[in-house]
Design a protein around this nucleic acid. Structure first.
Lengths: 242, 242
DNA sequence: GAATGTGAATCAATTCACAGCA
DNA sequence: TGCTGTGAATTGATTCACATTC
């Protein structure tokens, strides 16, 4: 969609799957197959009409609708989200900011007045909100999600570092900022390990090495067995919930 | 890891793959297989020693190290990130806050003094920073990334809604807050479509009856142009995110 | 008896490759 | 001729299921 929009702005009339795929950094066959699920919007021998495709995909993704959202937990992160221009630019309207701290109530954040958690249900219902953003501390998140859901919310964007358990039919997406950094750190460590691979390698696994940190001693006196094939690139092993 | 830490805090001595998998919300076989790549850390008939596993995984993921990071772009989001407790709690130390606005220089944010972009290279080198966080507007992100990389950064966490192009060997992870919301909105739309599916069920694509859109209509004009408003932003997921 | 570690089976995603159409 | 749309082939990830070990 990003690549398409860029083409649209340059008034490019049509684009082939090959060109668009190159611009988006994906495989052209995948792109064609994906598009084919939406319908036959291309013209053989020619390509896709850019405007038409933008229109169809926007509609399919729901970008033509306006979605009211509430943000619960107006700490640093919540305030930043409230101020984040990207939301309103993309069809999201922040309908309310909600915080449990009575001292926050009434305070202006991002041009809105923060409201107290007591009114959560009322706010959800009056605004017809179906998407909630949780930016509370981890301890409050589960409870907040339950209240949101009871009040009618069916999609949650969770910034709290907790796994929410929700009933079927409710979508949750989780953004964990420190996990993102940890994944980068993981790869950093491996880069460092590869560089120093020649040097005396610990009895530990092939992946490790490096890491000068004065870590804790292994609880038991065992030494790690080695394993590990040629590790895949991209993400961390699926140890942690994304 | 989060599930493991919780067990560790409750002083649970051992855990079976079954129990841990349930706590983490994954399949137990997958968990065992993943662990097996790190080595044989379990005991048949017993399970895994929680402390030992925490230690091994921490080491493997690089959590035992302390990583200095810089945050570039101290707007709302950058400030929220600077204040975000989760970073320091997980082995990340914010070494510096950098902003291009001279008016920001010297201002205190999260207990630190914001520094000017002019000193970016010096800061990176003096602190041995290899991980950078970009929270600038989209337009500045590519340039900032280039300067970071030239100064020695090899991992970037990008919050700007742009695809960065970086040389091989540099890792980039992208967090796009509005894409997260869009993905939720996409599912919301489908839920709404399903409810009303009884009425007008389109025979079409697998994606199914979508929003109340007026079927397939050629965009003679700029029907879809509303998806884009304002500045150099652009962020939409690939066609069908999970 | 209980639970790991792992080949084999299954399931899903991606890519190939080409028939068919403008 | 050039490019879409899509079955078939391939590649990868996940899960099963069980021999193995404590």
């Amino acid at each position: 969609m990003r690549a398409l929009t860029a083409l649209s702005e340059r008034s490019v009339p049509t684009v082939s799957s090959e060109e668009l795929a190159a611009a988006a950094g994906v495989n052209s066959a995948k792109l064609r197959k994906d598009f084919s699920y939406l319908g036959s919007y291309g013209t053989r021998g020619v390509g896709y009409d850019v405007e038409y495709l933008v229109y169809q995909i926007s509609r399919e993704l729901g970008l033509t609708q306006d979605w009211p959202v509430v943000i619960v937990g107006i700490g640093n992160l919540g305030a930043a989200l409230a101020n984040y221009g990207g939301f309103s630019a993309r069809g999201f309207r922040v309908a309310a900011l909600i915080d449990a701290d009575p001292a926050m109530a009434g305070k202006p954040v991002a041009g809105m007045s923060v409201q107290h958690t007591d009114d959560l249900e009322k706010i959800i219902e009056e605004n017809g909100v179906s998407i909630g953003v949780i930016a509370t501390p981890a301890g409050a998140a589960q409870q907040v999600s339950e209240r949101l859901i009871a009040a009618g919310v069916t999609s949650i964007l969770n910034f709290a570092p907790t796994v929410l358990s929700v009933p079927d039919g409710v979508d949750v997406r989780k953004v964990d900022l420190s996990i993102e950094l940890q994944i980068l750190a993981f790869h950093e460590q491996r880069k460092a390990g590869e560089e120093a691979a020649a040097a005396a390698s610990e009895p530990g696994p092939a992946v490790g090495g490096a890491a000068p940190a004065a870590a804790v001693e292994p609880p038991a006196g065992r030494t790690a067995a080695e394993a590990r094939k040629g590790g895949p690139e991209g993400d961390v092993p699926a140890v942690m919930p994304a």
